[in-house]
Amino acid sequence: MASRRKTAIRLPRKYAKDEVIEVKTRIIHPNHNGRMAYKDQGYIAEYYVWKIEIFYGDESIITVSASAALSQNPYFTFMLRATHSAPLRVVWVDTQGDQYTESVDVVV
């Protein structure tokens, strides 16, 4: 586990300018929904990714605000028109305030 990267973004191998491409993102996260019983002591507290924000260049293009109901290790796949060369950055924020960032370059 330790050697596995926590976050990842995948673009298609080949794409042309202005093509609409599929972008796949994922993060390794337990995403506890706060409803799992913990032995006899209560519940495993809520601990989940509540925001996924995607930036293309400096522009925020998609913001997903989620409740606790995304699955463990949430992945998110979306479409994007590759209009210009710019970094594509994904920021995940969890309920403990931790931020995880991953970025790839879109080159057209």
């Binding site: 925020s60 992945y75 998110f76 479409m79």
Partner: peptide, 19 residues
């Protein structure tokens, strides 16, 4: 979830997993 999208994405086709 709720979400906000930019005007020029070209297409909306999302995949994810939920509980």
């Amino acid at each position: 979830f709720t979400s906000k999208l930019a005007p020029d994405l070209g297409s909306v086709d999302w995949k994810l997993k939920i509980r």
